[in-house]
């Protein structure tokens, strides 16, 4: 089961999602044992995903907040049935 570098780049997400077939898992392990370029590639894919998770949250605008406050208050005045 020989996996080329090009094939490995197409299996990167399946690997991370844990849905590889046994053959592919073995093929990737063998490939990574000698291919530092693909190790770098997978590290960068992991970093890309982690950087997306590290994006700062967006703060709600003043308009949204005041709109919300008024919605909550009108709901308090007219409690649901």
């Amino acid at each position: 089961m020989v996996i080329t570098c090009r094939e490995l780049t197409e299996l990167a997400t399946d690997k991370k999602e844990g849905v590889l077939s046994g053959m592919d898992r073995l093929g990737i392990r063998v490939h990574l044992s000698w291919c530092t370029r693909c190790r770098t590639y997978l590290e960068q894919m992991d970093l890309a995903v982690d950087a997306l998770a590290a994006l700062p949250d967006e703060a709600a605008t003043d308009e949204v907040v005041s709109d919300l406050v008024s919605r909550f208050e009108s709901k308090k005045r007219t409690p649901s049935e």
Binding site: T4, C5, R6, R37, Y41, A51, A53, A54, L55
Partner: peptide
């Protein structure tokens, strides 16, 4: 990955270069 970065047999011809930042926070 763009196909032209691989050789005809599917090995890297233009492999990924090392990055200047190596933590998610530094990248952001």
């Amino acid at each position: 990955v763009a196909p032209e970065r691989f050789s005809r047999i599917g090995n890297w011809s233009a492999p990924p270069a090392a990055w200047s930042e190596r933590t998610p926070e530094a990248i952001v």
